[in-house]
Amino acid sequence: MFITDYIKDVFGAMKSLGTGLKRTLYYFTHHKEIITQQYPDNRATLVLPDRFKGEVVMPHDEKNEHRCTGCTACELACPNGTIKVVTKFDITPEGKKKKAIDKLVYHLELCTMCNLCIVACPSDAIKMAQTFEHSVFDRSQLTKVLNKPGSKIMEGVE
């Protein structure tokens, strides 16, 4: 009948609204459900997963040695032209000429963190660092040289 349908409508509507209200009231009163992370304040406790792709770095050991042979595989693998390998020729103690890197230039502003260079590197010389706060005031600071000054290639890396 019309009237009963009408009343049923009204009560059904009220019930559905009440269910929603109950749910939001639950969250209003249960503050332990809050999931906000207070980002700049929690820097100390912030853990990024070890695979997080933040920026490409070249690890050096305590003797200031890296593993890069200057093979340019990373440069070729990079889709964006982010890496430029500048090579030079070292003179080995035996007096032979040997190719080595002079500079490995890395343009952070071009990098899309696609991980392809890391995969391509045959000697595991570069890896992804777990950093993410990359903003700087001057664009030129985004162009980085990955090998430290005065560093040389590790013994036994070919």
């Binding site: 997963p49 695979r51 997080f52 899309t112 963190m113 696609c114 991980n115 995969v119 992804m128």
Partner: peptide, 19 residues
Amino acid sequence: EETCGARLTMNYMVPGGVM
């Protein structure tokens, strides 16, 4: 993020499998 290293643009699939 834990497995692929990124949250949105993962680039995890490579020809032949996963990275």
